[in-house]
Each structure stands twice: as C-alpha cells, then as structure tokens.
C-alpha cells in the first residue's frame, strides 16, 4: 500500500484559547491555569523570602523592602488571583467529582447538557470570588492610605 503523508492538524497551545469562539467554561479553565501559575510563582518566592526570618531577616514587614506600595499592589494582584482560583477551584471540586453536573438523562432535542446544570454553581462561586476580591481591594486602599 502506498504511504501518504498526513498533515498534523493539532491546534497546539492556541487551541486552549479556541480562537475566541468557545464557551464561558473554556475561559474559566484558561484563567484557572494562569492564576494557578501566578500563585505558584509567588508562593515559591514567598517561601524563600519568609524563610529568611530564621536568619533574622524580615524583608516583608513594616518599614522594610517588600512593604513598599508597589509590592502591596502586587500582593493584591496575587490575592485577586487567589480569590478567583479558590472559588473556581471549589466549583471544579464539585463538578469534577460529578456532584453538580446532573444525572444521566435521555437526550431529547434541544439537548440539555451538564454545562447548563452547573451554571448556577458557577454564578454563586464567581459572586463569592467578587466579594473576596472587593475585601482585598478595600484592605489595599486602607494599607496605602496609612
């Protein structure tokens, strides 16, 4: 049999974004990854900086290098990432363990999928995330005002 070349049509990393044509859950999945990476990066730095206290170096406390407003704003961004990642993660725990996606049903057109079943949970979690975000913002304004 003759061998033909096949063209690799995998979308690659841009396929994660789906060229802007996909649903809300797709974007939450991307944002979950990005915020996770940001938090991990911060966490590793944080371990290093706070571990220095064993040698009497307190870089993050009042009057020290990392207590400057620019770092406080950076910390707020990490907090915002946490606010999203935590509540979206909680939604994912429920969804991925099959508790918020509904029961098996017979598909009757127009089809109802598990996406619409978990939407109320998504809305609640995003609202909680927004509340946490607002609290962090309030704290930042207070801290910068001091």
């Amino acid at each position: 049999m003759a061998e033909f070349t096949r063209f690799d049509n995998r979308l690659g990393i841009l396929g994660w974004l789906g060229k802007g044509k996909w649903g809300l859950e797709r974007y939450l999945y991307i944002l979950h990854r990005l915020t996770g990476l940001a938090i991990l990066f911060y966490f590793m730095m944080h371990i290093f900086v706070t571990s220095l206290r064993a040698y009497g170096i307190y870089l993050w406390t009042e009057g020290n290098f990392f207590h400057q407003p620019i770092f406080r704003i950076g910390e707020f961004l990490v907090f915002a990432a946490f606010a999203f990642h935590a509540f979206n993660g909680l939604r994912l725990v429920f969804v991925e363990l099959g508790f918020a996606v509904g029961k098996p049903i017979e598909p009757i057109f127009p089809y109802e999928t598990c996406i619409s079943k978990q939407r109320p949970l998504l809305v609640v979690m995003m609202l909680l995330s927004a509340v946490l975000f607002a609290m962090g913002g309030y704290e930042l304004i207070m801290a910068l005002g001091r």
């Binding site: 371990i47 290093f48 706070t50 571990s51 220095l52 206290r53 064993a54």
Partner: peptide, 8 residues
Amino acid sequence: FGSYSSFV
C-alpha cells in the same frame, strides 16, 4: 528549606 526555617 521552608520547614527547617520555620523550626529555627
């Protein structure tokens, strides 16, 4: 490293 520092 982190837990050693916490102990110290």
